[in-house]
Write a protein that binds this DNA or RNA. Structure first.
Lengths: 242, 242
DNA sequence: CGCGGCTTTGATCCTTGTCAACTACAGTGG
DNA sequence: CCACTGTAGTTGACAAGGATCAAAGCCGCG
């Protein structure tokens, strides 16, 4: 049961509930033809109507919106095992853009394959639905964070979430936060300078360490206490919720 | 086509795409036994595992979370035609609470009925999926608002959104914002006092009027310009997008 | 070597939070 | 009828978190 699955999509969906061996086999077929992308390239832009969806195998991808005044807001992070845009088949035109933050390895999945999965593999359908709803729960938590917590706790909370999500797909060997401080600021909704100050504050308190724009967490329990992080919104009962 | 449907759920789902007459008939059956609730009562609390979902017929309902420090964040508004908690059947335990903001008329729908709809009415299934994805898009927009706009524009943007959503289900005769300023503040993520100042500022500029805790918009076009509101994220192509 | 991108730090300003007092008003009970 | 209570709205003074502007340091790269 605790097998170190090679297939990161299967590993992720396994958090939603049991999958049968035929499901796993099907998911292996889906991951056919990975390709690489550099950091800071767009997968899809606001207004497009793309014909296939993207699965992240490695690296970090984000959803973002740009305002009239040029400010950017990053409204979601996609990690290995996450599907970027399951919804385009239903909603049509994109109401936001999707781009890489780091070098990434990705797989394109056509709408047809997705519909095959949804129609003919009920356990996978349920798991994909689960995944959509967890994404929504994460958005709610980000909203709470931004509206009701100070920037230091908000940043710590973000680190805790990414830590938990990477752990849930056995990818904690990846760098926790391979981001520039501008990107961090666009996630938190603060200015670059302030993000910098808050980060160095966390560093001074020994809650995180930073090397080459990579954040590491020496003591996750302490960080969780500081951030008042409660991971129930990630709905990871099956996996490394703790 | 522009029929003034009595059934507000049908009216809402009609925004997702065409429904056949059998679908409409089925949706009429679902709305069987409405009940009333006063303002500020909880439908579901954090940690529960409820057995049926709730549809709003009239009034205003919200999702909210309460932090350790007692602060509250309202993370979603549900208006007539919205289903409050379609996800509980998949996610299990609630990671937030749901409560009324105003007097409401609601309908309970059992999990069994929901599953019947999802399994046997493909157009309704698609429409419900659409509705979930629009909810997610709204969350993203709220996040942008909170992170990257000043409180006055943020509040104006909220009013524009509620205006558009009520129009899309032919309920603009309802009061636009029948909320106390504390509730408004919990939506925007600011303090009560600041919400008060911002609201009176909007009033001074003639962008909104207020009577008995009810906000009205004399000139929606002007308000939209001020808020830089672009409603594409609501995905209302069929209805009153403009 | 010089250039460009990112980080770090300081100074100053502005938006928003906090504390507190006061007003308005509806409901209640004497 | 009136005093009493509780709740929500309003306003002012002050503090603090965060934004903005500016300059300097760091580092990889051509």
């Amino acid at each position: 049961m605790h097998s170190p699955m090679k297939n990161v999509l299967a590993r992720k969906l396994w958090n939603a509930g049991r999958l049968a061996s035929e499901d796993l086999k099907k998911l292996d077929d889906v991951i056919a033809d990975p390709f690489q992308l550099d950091a800071r390239e767009d997968l899809i832009q606001h207004g497009e109507d793309p014909q296939n969806v993207h699965l992240v195998l490695s690296g970090m991808v984000c959803r973002y919106k740009v305002l009239q005044n040029g400010k950017r807001a990053i409204v979601a992070l996609m990690l290995p095992g996450d599907i970027c845009d399951l919804h385009v088949a239903i909603l049509g035109r994109m109401d936001h853009s999707i781009g890489t933050l780091t070098e990434c390895s990705l797989v394109k999945i056509s709408r047809g394959v997705i519909e095959d999965l949804l129609d003919n593999y009920p356990r996978i359908r349920r798991a994909l639905f689960w995944s959509t709803l967890v994404d929504e729960a994460i958005l709610r938590e980000w909203l709470v964070n931004m509206g009701r917590r100070r920037a230091d706790k908000q940043m710590a909370h973000l680190f805790c979430e990414v830590h938990a999500r990477l752990t849930a797909v056995n990818r904690m060997h990846d760098a926790l936060m391979p981001l520039t401080q501008e990107e961090l600021a666009d996630i938190l909704g603060v200015s670059t300078v302030h993000a910098q100050r808050v980060l160095s504050e966390l560093r001074n308190q020994g809650l995180v360490t930073v090397q080459d724009s990579r954040v590491a967490v020496p003591d996750i329990v302490r960080l969780r206490q500081f951030a008042e992080f409660e991971g129930d919104y990630l709905h990871l009962e099956h996996a490394a919720a703790e």
